[in-house]
Design a protein around this nucleic acid. Structure first.
Length: 396
DNA sequence: TCTGGGGTCCTAGGACCC
DNA sequence: TCTGGGGTCCTAGGACCC
C-alpha cells in the first residue's frame, strides 16, 4: 500500500487529501506514515516526530487507529488470497504473492497486478504499488520504484542493466550499517559488490553475510514464499512465533527503581497475557533497558520450565533489572525505555500444568491469571489488574 | 522536544558434556 | 606429562525489516 496508515486514516476526509498529514510522531515518538503532501516537506516514516514538526509545523498529526486499519488490511490480504494461496504477509500493508500458478487462469503478472490494484482502489479507496520480479528482494526493489500508484517489472534478463548501477544500500536486506561498511571499502554500487568473487566477499564480511550479499547482487535470493506469514495478525496463521514482547518509552527518563518495577509489571502482565491468549509459554525472559544516552542493553534468563504466569515473568524481569542497575555502581543512569520479552515460545496443550519444582508449593498464580483473563475478556483490559498499576496506567 | 514498537536472524564466547 | 574434537545450550550484542 502507498502510505497505508495515512491513506486509510484520511480516506473519508477528502478535505485532508491535499494537506500534509502525519500518522504517529507525538511526544518522543516517530512518524509511522506520512502522506505524499507531507513527504514534499521531507517528512519520512521512521523520522522523530519533533523533526517532522520542524519540517512542516502546519502538518496535521494523528494517532493510528488500528480498529480502522486492521480490518482494511485483513480485507486486502483476502483479496490477494483470491488470486493465489501462496501469499506471504509481511506487515499490515505489504505482502508477497507467488502468481506462477495463476497465470493460465488470470493472465500475466502485470495483468494480475492491475486487477489487484483496481480492486484495492475500488473497495478501500486507497492506492497501492506492485513490483514484479523472479525473487523476493528484486520484487521488493521494483515495488519501491513503482511507488506511488504504479507497477514496475524487473525481468531477470534486465536485472544487471537496471539494478547494478544502483547504490548497494538500495537492496532489500542491506541496511545502513552494511551500506556504510561496504562504502568504506570502496564498494558503492550493486555492480561493485557483484564484481567481487563470493569467496573473497565471505572473507571480507563473514560467511553468511557474504553469501547473502552475493545472492542479492545477482538477483538470486529467495524464490519460495512462506505462506501465512508471521504474527502480523497474531497466531493462527503460519508457524508460531518464537518470541513476543512489549516495550515502552517512558514519558520522561526515570531513575526511580520502583517506578521502573511498576512499568515492568505493566509490560509483564501484557506479555504473559498475550502468551496465554495464544496458548504459548516461554522459557526465557528477556529485559531491554535503554538509558537516557540511548545506549541499549539486553539481559535474559532462561528458566527451568516455560512460563506464562504474569508474576513469574515480572519477578524475573525485576531481578534482571536490579542486577543490571546494581552492576552500574554509584553512577546512576536514567532509563528511557524498558521492555520485556518472552522467548523460546512453545505451544501449550489443554490440561498442561506447569511442572512444580521439587518441594515447591503451587502458589496459585496460574489460576489467578486465568481468572483475570476471563474478567478482562468480558469487561475489558482495565477490569482487573494489579493494584499497583491502578492510577498509574496508561494501560493495564 | 532528537531518535517507537513489533519482530527475525546471525555471531561469538563460555560452560558443559562425551 | 601437557592438554582434541564435536556437540548443545545460554547469554549478549548487532543487523535488519516494516
Amino acid at each position: 500500500m502507498d502510505a497505508f496508515y495515512a491513506s486509510v486514516m484520511i480516506r473519508d476526509r477528502p478535505e485532508l487529501h491535499d494537506a500534509p498529514v502525519v500518522v504517529g510522531g507525538g511526544h518522543r515518538g516517530v512518524v509511522l506514515s506520512a502522506n505524499y503532501p507531507a513527504r514534499r516537506f521531507g517528512i519520512r516514516s521512521g523520522m522523530p516526530g519533533t523533526q517532522a514538526q520542524r519540517l512542516c509545523p502546519h502538518a496535521i498529526t494523528m494517532a493510528p487507529d488500528f480498529g480502522l486499519l486492521t480490518p482494511v488490511s485483513r480485507s486486502i490480504m483476502d483479496t490477494f488470497r483470491s488470486v493465489t494461496p501462496v501469499v506471504e504477509v509481511t506487515s499490515l500493508d505489504e505482502a508477497f504473492l507467488d502468481v506462477r500458478g495463476a497465470r493460465r487462469l488470470l493472465g500475466s503478472p502485470t495483468v494480475i497486478a492491475e486487477r489487484l490494484r483496481s480492486r484495492v482502489r475500488a473497495e478501500h479507496g486507497i492506492t497501492c504499488s506492485v513490483g514484479i520480479a523472479a525473487s523476493v528482494s528484486v520484487a521488493k526493489l521494483a515495488s519501491r520504484q513503482a511507488k506511488p500508484d504504479g507497477v514496475r517489472v524487473i525481468a531477470p534478463d534486465r536485472f544487471v542493466a537496471e539494478v547494478h548501477p544502483l547504490d548497494i544500500g538500495d537492496l532489500h536486506g542491506v541496511g545502513e550499517a552494511t551500506r556504510r561498511r561496504l562504502h568504506r571499502i570502496g564498494l558503492v554500487t550493486v555492480g561493485d559488490v557483484a564484481a567481487i568473487p563470493v569467496e573473497q566477499l565471505r572473507r571480507m564480511v563473514g560467511n553468511h553475510l557474504g553469501s547473502h550479499l552475493h545472492a542479492l547482487v545477482w538477483g538470486a535470493d529467495r524464490t519460495q514464499l512462506r505462506p501465512g506469514g508471521a504474527g502480523v495478525f497474531g497466531f493462527g496463521e503460519g508457524e508460531p512465533e518464537s518470541s513476543m514482547g512489549s516495550q515502552h518509552t517512558l514519558a520522561v527518563d526515570v531513575g526511580d527503581r520502583h517506578v521502573l518495577h511498576r512499568e515492568l509489571l505493566s509490560l509483564a502482565t501484557r506479555v504473559a497475557g498475550r502468551a496465554r491468549a495464544a496458548h504459548r509459554r516461554g522459557r526465557t525472559v528477556a529485559l531491554t533497558v535503554r538509558f537516557s544516552d540511548f545506549v541499549t542493553v539486553n539481559r535474559s534468563r532462561t528458566l527451568t520450565e516455560p512460563t506464562d504466569v504474569s508474576l513469574e515473568v515480572h519477578a524475573t524481569a525485576v531481578d534482571l533489572l536490579d542486577q543490571l542497575l546494581d552492576g552500574l555502581g554509584p553512577r546512576a543512569r536514567r532509563v528511557r525505555l524498558v521492555g520485556v520479552r518472552l522467548e523460546g515460545l512453545q505451544r501449550t496443550h489443554d490440561g498442561d500444568t506447569r511442572q512444580l519444582a521439587f518441594g515447591e508449593r503451587d502458589p496459585g498464580w496460574p489460576d489467578a491469571d486465568r481468572a483475570v483473563d476471563r474478567a478482562v475478556g468480558r469487561f475489558g483490559s482495565t477490569a482487573v489488574r494489579p493494584a499497583s498499576l491502578i492510577g498509574h496506567g496508561r494501560r493495564a
